[in-house]
Design a protein around this nucleic acid. Sequence first.
DNA 1: TCCAAAAAATGAACTTGATTCATCTATACT
DNA 2: AGTATAGATGAATCAAGTTCATTTTTTGGA
Lengths: 246, 246
Amino acid sequence: MPEAASKTRREKVEEKERAILAATRAVFRDKGPEDAKITAIAQAANLAEGTVYLYFKNKQALLMAAVSEFYAELTQDAEAAVRAAHETKVRLTALAQLHFSRVLDEWPLIAEAMGPYLPSREYRETEAYALNRRYVAVFDGVIRDGISRGEIRADVSVAVMRDAFYGGLEHFARSARLRDSQPDTKAEVAQFLTVFTAGIMDRPSAGVLDGARVIRRLQGVITDIEDQLRAGQQGDVDMQDGEGTQ
Amino acid sequence: MPEAASKTRREKVEEKERAILAATRAVFRDKGPEDAKITAIAQAANLAEGTVYLYFKNKQALLMAAVSEFYAELTQDAEAAVRAAHETKVRLTALAQLHFSRVLDEWPLIAEAMGPYLPSREYRETEAYALNRRYVAVFDGVIRDGISRGEIRADVSVAVMRDAFYGGLEHFARSARLRDSQPDTKAEVAQFLTVFTAGIMDRPSAGVLDGARVIRRLQGVITDIEDQLRAGQQGDVDMQDGEGTQ
DNA sequence: TCCAAAAAATGAACTTGATTCATCTATACT
DNA sequence: AGTATAGATGAATCAAGTTCATTTTTTGGA
């Protein structure tokens, strides 16, 4: 009975698993959902059809796994993007840009994999759901951060903002793709964010000056600085000053 | 060759066509997409499987026709709702409410019918696309009306607002369904609209004091202080002052 | 190096659901 | 009533996912 070699054994299995997932995503991307048959995927991975079923219970599970991989990568990149910026607006722009472009790329796969589930209860049991939660948690973090700094209004639930953000973006991505083949992504996302941020950004409702609100904002800024200080290290504090906006 | 009776003949055909569509929507609604097989639909309409294909080219066409019917009804009701109110905010609320509840009901059908197309070019050729255009035209009208009255900002394209509105709403409807089975629709839609309308409503752009800019400058100053602090020791800045964040 | 057991891979057979088609039934008009 | 035509039927066909008996590869030990 083999025991010592089990590590390389497992590694091999996982490697092939990843290969199948990669093949799946590739087939979806450049053959389209219509032609993403198991046969085609197996062929793309240099396997017989039956072999795919040694690694995934059925097609649905395969697609879900592929989508999970997609979300895992997306989350990584989203976290990195948030780490790279400290201003809420910049962070949201980065998240929007990222989501927009990635979802645009792999929409057929996502739609096909999620379709059967979307508004169903059992979806909550899937791994993809868990990963999706982790993904949107990045957004939630940015928002909560913004609220505590007084930059974002506190009178609307984060969940609603989240839905407005991602729902709007996705709808937007789809109709952008429908409009023309080479949309000016940056500009379009910027327009969307104008609508969105204007909606959630806290601002003086009148022209005058709300002392309590200013205090709250200052408090937020100071807490932010404090956090950065506590992190110690070579804090490369991002300094988006000047007249940038508009 | 019959010629005079052709009217009743046609009527009979159209009646049966509508019956099949009704059966389709019913089956989707209360058996779910998984079990919405042609056999089940034919049975629900008291027909043999083959008969369905005398009325619709294939399943995809049948689903599209059902969705078209759905949009046609929705458009009627949307137009009525807009006619019934004259204030932009009230109109948008009505549209949102309508869209939210209807889409919630028939999401499985819509998703299944649209899935294969959504971001594809050929979708533009379908009847469903044309009807969708007519539907969103109602929204567009409300917006343009609002712009001309100065209630809605004119610096963002209507298309973007439309995407933000419907995309956000749909995402929102799905996650509402995911959360709990009996959501307080009215309240949730109201929250969504808070985010949305605050975003597109025109308002005095604070002629006096731009809080955001002030904060940004302050942030810069504090960063300077932080740098100096870093030179010394790691500051133990604890600043939890009064005024709950709310 | 060779062997037997275990693991992995294969592709033909099976299943399910959409679609077609040869056949049957109902209707309209003479 | 008789015939032509429209309408309906469901068994047969087709396509794609899934299973499984068989073959090939890998592994650890003699």
